[in-house]
Amino acid sequence: MDHPAKHGVRETGRACCEMSRSSSGVLCKKQGPVCRDRTEYVFFDGLHPTDAVNARIARKGYGSSSPEHAYPINVKKLAML
């Protein structure tokens, strides 16, 4: 995510949950603690973005005219075909 602080995201390097050692450090520890405000994190676990980041990705893919975000056309134009 470009400029995370601009979007209210403070934590870009750690997951929102405590990582499990048995899952190669990519999934949350079963019944482990999770962060209070998921909107401040890029990743929920070691692989998956938080809902806030997923929503931003979806908005870009839906309506962006930039080929960096949606190629060859965005979802909105695709739905109108």
Rank of each mutant, 00 (worst) to 15 (best):
D2G: 12
C17L: 03
L78K: 08
V26F: 04
D51K: 12
A5Q: 15
L78N: 10
G32E: 01
D2P: 12
F44E: 06
K76S: 05
V53E: 00
V75P: 03
I57V: 10
L27D: 12
R38S: 08
S24I: 03
A52Q: 12
I73L: 10
F43R: 09
S64P: 07
K76I: 05
R10T: 11
F43Q: 07
C17M: 02
I57K: 08
Q31W: 09
A5K: 14
R38M: 06
Y62Q: 15
D45S: 06
G8E: 07
K6H: 14
G46V: 01
S22A: 15
L81P: 04
G46M: 02
Y71P: 02
P4C: 02
L81N: 05
V53W: 00
K77N: 15
R36G: 15
K29R: 14
R59N: 12
Y71C: 15
T12S: 08
R56H: 07
R21E: 14
D2S: 14
P67M: 02
E18K: 07
F43C: 10
A70K: 10
R56K: 05
V75N: 12
S64C: 06
G13S: 14
I57F: 08
D37H: 05
V9F: 09
L78S: 10
L78M: 11
K29H: 06
P67Y: 01
E68Y: 10
Y71H: 13
H48T: 04
D45R: 04
K77E: 14
N74H: 04
S20A: 15
K29P: 01
R56V: 07
S65M: 10
M1T: 12
K6D: 13
V75G: 07
P33C: 06
G61C: 07
S20N: 07
G25D: 03
S24E: 13
Y71T: 13
P67N: 05
P33Y: 04
S24W: 12
Y41A: 03
G32C: 00
I73A: 14
A58D: 10
A58I: 11
I73H: 07
D37Q: 04
G25L: 02
V53P: 00
P67A: 05
H7M: 11
K77D: 14
L78H: 08
H3Q: 12
T39D: 11
A70R: 06
Q31F: 15
V9H: 08
V42S: 00
G61E: 13
V53Q: 02
D2C: 10
S20I: 02
P72H: 05
N74C: 06
A79T: 12
V34R: 14
Y62A: 09
D51G: 09
E40P: 04
A52M: 09
H3V: 08
P4G: 01
G32V: 00
S22I: 12
S66A: 12
P4L: 00
D2K: 10
H69L: 07
G61H: 04
S64I: 07
C17D: 01
L81Y: 05
S22V: 13
A15Y: 08
C28R: 00
A79D: 10
Q31A: 13
S65V: 06
R36Y: 12
R36T: 13
F43A: 09
F44V: 03
Q31T: 12
G46E: 02
G32S: 01
E40R: 07
A52I: 03
P4A: 00
F43W: 11
Y62L: 15
R38L: 01
